[in-house]
């Protein structure tokens, strides 16, 4: 069996070489995500760039979160059909 597996040539050398951990880090003087988020907001007001996290985005993120609560407050949750969320009637903008 070992020979048969070896014959299949399952282990590519490139796969073996491409393993490990790579870390991308912000520099020590990075102004931070909070600053960048406000910069995006003010730039959009000044007519530069667009808003990604707009109300439609906010509804999808916030709505997904609320789904946990509606499910949590339901004591028979484990035996019920889960609450459907993306049935585009509710979420469609």
């Amino acid at each position: 069996m070992a020979k048969a597996y070896a014959a299949m040539d399952l282990e590519m050398r490139s796969d073996v070489l491409a393993t490990g951990e790579t870390v991308w880090k912000a520099p020590y003087d990075y102004k931070g995500g909070h600053y960048d988020h406000f910069l995006t907001f003010f730039n959009a007001i000044r007519g530069q760039g667009t808003i990604v996290q707009d109300p439609s985005f906010g509804l999808r993120a916030g709505g997904a979160a609320l789904l946990a609560n509606s499910n949590l407050s339901n004591e028979k949750r484990a035996h019920q059909h889960p609450f459907c969320f993306i049935n585009n009637n509710l979420i469609k903008s």
């Binding site: 912000a26 995500g33 406000f38 995006t40 707009d54 109300p55 993120a61």
Partner: peptide
Amino acid sequence: GAQIIEAQKRSKAICQIGSQGMSSLGN
């Protein structure tokens, strides 16, 4: 949600929600 989306579209004003990490270099 739908009411806020509608108000934003009608007013055409800029509206951004505050999950600030999304704009970060890491994200």
